[in-house]
């Protein structure tokens, strides 16, 4: 059914929408009826700059299986990044106050 169950993640980075690049502050993540994808339910992620204003949004609607593959790919890419750029990542974390 349509729910109001939503997970939110604070983000730091950039996204590209219809009007070009913009800074991202938050991801809204939910599993519910999609707007566009021909699926009954989808894993939906809205990457947004201002959570309270329409627009400036990068949206994806994924099938359950493809969302699982994406999670695995992100995990694998991050693991490779840690292997290849551990020193850089540690520097960023120190700068950000994360240890």
């Amino acid at each position: 059914m349509c729910t109001d169950i939503i997970e939110k993640a604070e983000l730091s980075g950039s996204g590209k929408g219809a009007e070009g690049w913009f800074g991202l502050r938050q991801a809204n993540v939910y599993y519910d009826h999609p707007f566009h994808a021909p699926l009954d339910h989808a894993l939906i992620v809205d990457f947004v700059q201002d959570p309270d204003t329409p627009g400036h949004r990068v949206a994806v609607e994924l099938s359950f299986e493809s969302a699982e593959r994406l999670i695995a790919a992100i995990r694998a890419a991050l693991d490779s990044g840690i292997d290849a750029h551990a020193q850089d990542i540690q520097s960023v974390r120190v700068l950000a106050g994360v240890h």
Partner: peptide, 19 residues
Amino acid sequence: RFGVGSADDVAAVARSQGG
């Protein structure tokens, strides 16, 4: 009341705030 924009963009804001 969630703002002006395309129906899907406005719905995204509404959903993030619980409708």
